[in-house]
């Protein structure tokens, strides 16, 4: 019964209990359109969480990705309007590349100067956001100006249904994009040399280096990849909400970090899985959305997210200590 002790199983169990609880308070929770909209809210946070997961497995932390996401999104949308380009693939590629370049800045400082990632990413995040708002502009690009291709792309649905009263609802295809990226990250972490290097780096940097992992390659890979995911998610977000707002995503890093920690990743590094993170993201989004359904005042949202971070990290710390006490038998 060793699998019962796996953190993913525990998280899934808590998640199920929470869902049953919320469903009892308000049965509307179980309606298909609510579940679909929950899944839809998972997409953006989830994609960003995949990047943060890799960084946290390596023992780092990133608070700059919301700035990267918003910069990549706004610049790309501006570029599309400027050139009148109406494709989908190229803009997403551009946004991801931009995010990756910003991420490289993080990697450069973290690797070259051996500086604490938190401080580096505080600096780069502030720089990128300041540059965007101070130099590029502060005006929103509203629906009447947003490129139609982006909106149409984000409107794609996998399942479309009609309610009794004639309104339609459905499950957005962006969920598939999210799942696809999640599988990709899972495969990278599990089956590639660089993925194993990320775990090794988080476990013990010196040991990883002596075992022959190229730390520079690993560090650049994770920060650039996380940046690329953020840039991609940023553009997707603007398509989904039909708006490109250069002030978007403020404070999002806390939600994402909370979700990743909730998913069982440890900031000491070396631990964390894609499945756990996805469950953590779902849990966080569900709790935040359900506060409304459960008729709790929305002003409590920040408190709830904070308490979630504290409890989740406390449990993770407790687990890590117990593991240490038991010896390294995992």
């Amino acid at each position: 019964m060793a699998w019962l002790r796996r953190s993913e199983v525990v998280i899934a169990g808590i998640l199920l209990l929470a869902m049953i609880g919320i469903g009892l308070v308000n049965p509307a929770f179980w309606q298909l359109d609510n579940l679909f909209s929950l899944l839809r809210s998972n997409v953006i946070i989830g994609i960003m969480a995949l990047g943060v997961l890799m960084i946290m497995i390596s023992g780092g932390i990133d608070v700059s990705f919301p700035a990267f996401a918003v910069a990549a999104m706004y610049l790309t949308v501006k570029g599309m309007l400027w050139t009148g380009y109406d494709g989908v693939a190229l803009p997403f590629l551009t946004a991801a590349t931009m995010g990756a370049l910003f991420g490289c800045l993080n990697a450069f400082f973290v690797y070259k100067f051996r500086m604490i990632p938190l401080i580096v990413t505080l600096g780069t995040g502030s720089m990128v956001r300041g540059f965007l708002l101070g130099v590029v502009g502060t005006s929103m690009i509203n629906i009447n100006k947003m490129p139609d291709v982006l909106i149409d792309f984000a409107k794609t649905e996998v399942i479309s249904m009609t309610k009794a009263d004639g309104t339609t609802y459905g499950l957005t295809a962006m969920v598939l994009v999210y799942f696809g990226l999640a599988i990709l990250v899972h495969l990278i972490l599990r089956y590639t040399m660089i993925g194993r290097g990320i775990y090794a780096l988080g476990g013990d940097q010196e040991a990883a280096s002596r075992a022959g992992f190229d730390l520079r390659k690993v560090i650049f890979f994770i920060y650039c990849f996380a940046g690329a995911l953020a840039g991609f998610a940023g553009l997707l977000h603007s398509g989904m909400i039909w708006l490109a707002n250069p002030r978007d995503f403020v404070g999002l890093e806390l939600d994402v970090i909370a979700a990743v920690v909730l998913g069982g990743a440890s900031i000491f590094g070396g631990r964390g899985t894609v499945l756990g993170t996805m469950l953590g993201v779902f849990m966080l989004v569900m709790v935040k959305n359900s506060l409304i359904i459960m008729k709790i005042d929305t002003t409590w949202q920040r408190v709830v997210v904070g308490v979630i971070i504290v409890i989740a990290t406390a449990v993770t710390a407790w687990r890590d200590q117990k593991r240490k006490a038991r010896g390294d038998r995992t």
Binding site: D297, T299, R302, G306
Partner: peptide
């Protein structure tokens, strides 16, 4: 949280910072 529960300072204070700010929002609306 940092010494007894042994949460890393970054995450502990990130979480409590949210709680403090959140309480401030709840109190003032």
């Amino acid at each position: 949280l940092i010494t007894k529960v042994k949460i890393t300072p970054i995450l502990a204070t990130l979480g409590t910072g949210q709680v403090f700010t959140g309480l401030a929002i709840v109190l003032t609306g």
